[in-house]
Simulated assay, not measured.
Amino acid sequence: MDRAHNFCAGPATLPLPVLQKVQNELTNYRGKGTSILEMSHRSREYTEIDRQATERLKKLLGAGDEWSVLFLQGGASSQFMMVPQNFLSSDRTADYIDTGTWSDNAIHEAKLFGNVHVPFSSKSENYTRIPSNSELELSDNASYLHFTSNNTIYGTQFPTEPHVSVPLVCDASSDFLSRPINLDRYGLIYAGAQKNLGPAGVTVVLIKDSFADRQVNIDIPTILDYKTHMKKIFNTPPVFAVYMVNYVLEWLEQNGGIEHFQSLNQKKSEKLYTEIDRDDFYNGTVQKESRSKMNVTFRLNDNHLEEKFLTEAKASGLLALKGHRSVGGIRASIYNACPMESVNALVDFMKDFRQSNG
């Protein structure tokens, strides 16, 4: 059957060439007579996959030897707990910017381990914007500043990293590898893979050696200690998910790297926002300067038409456009693997729907 236009927020669309490559290898990985799903994580084959994925990721980001790449489990939600458990204590403070549900969840977890200061929150504004750097009321001597670079639910995105003097810790789950980042400002970056990087099941963590040395807690369960995983593959990783991540990274390399996808994502989002802003039939849900290039959120001027919009869109092969259950509306997630053809199809549908129902 023909593939539909998939705008799912996560698990999200994956590159078709990667899916086809995995399909061809699924029952017999490179002539070994067995699937990668059936191989030991200590095997030569998986060890090579892990090495390739690590090297490819570091090359794409321009990360040097001072960075470690970890393939962990538990999603970003596990990192909400793991970061403060390693780097926060009752006599230390960390700054957490609150721009959405996931940053709010991270704040809740961090408070279990130490002092949390919130230098900015847009909660009272229904999370419709990102702060300017001048709005950040930072604490003195913070251990780190945590922020969520892109907010899948509300459709906001930091245009660039906050400019602060302390190391940045970032939940980059939904815009990881969609644009270059300045690694010099970061101590740790984590991302659930199921947006831009691969299937659900693996959480990628990049941690700088100098930041790992700032660890303040010593009574940490072994598996929750970053240094445990920096030394070796400690426990059975999500082998199949990492295997697919490696192929997605290869696909990114072969198609121009991060800079290419930054340009493509800009064009895709501009096309959608232009159609949203054409008149008042559609309405963007966030302030324009805070708009995400990954998750385009909008409402119809007549809310009663939204269910009809979603039903007819699905019948036209445009999938997963319903907004998050907590906010409603429409959401088009246009991650790296979402092709321009899908965006064009959505824009054409939006034009036709306006003409028929406006």
Rank of each mutant, 00 (worst) to 15 (best):
R325D: 05
V118W: 06
A94D: 03
F158H: 10
Q23I: 09
N182I: 11
P238K: 07
K111N: 06
N235V: 09
D95H: 04
H163G: 08
A106E: 06
P84C: 05
D104S: 14
S269Y: 05
F298R: 06
Y29P: 03
D302F: 02
E289S: 15
I36R: 10
Y46A: 03
T99H: 08
V164R: 00
Y186W: 05
A110Q: 05
S78G: 04
E312H: 13
Q157R: 07
F7A: 08
A193P: 01
R56G: 12
A12F: 00
T160H: 15
L168G: 05
E137R: 13
V216H: 04
A12Q: 03
T27M: 13
V205M: 00
H260F: 12
F176Y: 11
W102D: 12
K21M: 12
L272S: 04
S165H: 14
G114E: 03
A241Y: 02
R44M: 03
N357G: 03
L26T: 09
S143D: 08
M340L: 13
L70P: 01
H117V: 01
N115G: 04
N150K: 03
M230R: 07
K308R: 14
N357C: 04
R331C: 13
H117R: 11
A106I: 02
D352S: 14
S316M: 13
L26P: 00
N295A: 10
A320W: 04
T311S: 13
R278F: 09
R354L: 05
L249Q: 05
N86E: 06
T152V: 10
V22G: 05
V204M: 06
K58R: 15
P237W: 00
K314E: 15
R92V: 02
F120K: 02
G323V: 01
R92Y: 06
G62H: 08
I107N: 10
V239D: 01
S122I: 10
N151I: 09
W251Q: 11
H163R: 15
K314S: 11
G33K: 04
N295C: 06
G74W: 02
N344K: 14
L206V: 00
F234G: 09
P162C: 08
L305D: 01
M244A: 02
N255D: 07
S40F: 03
A313F: 07
L249T: 04
G62A: 07
R92A: 12
P221G: 09
L305Y: 01
T128F: 08
T101Y: 12
K314M: 10
P237L: 00
Y243K: 07
G75A: 10
Q194H: 14
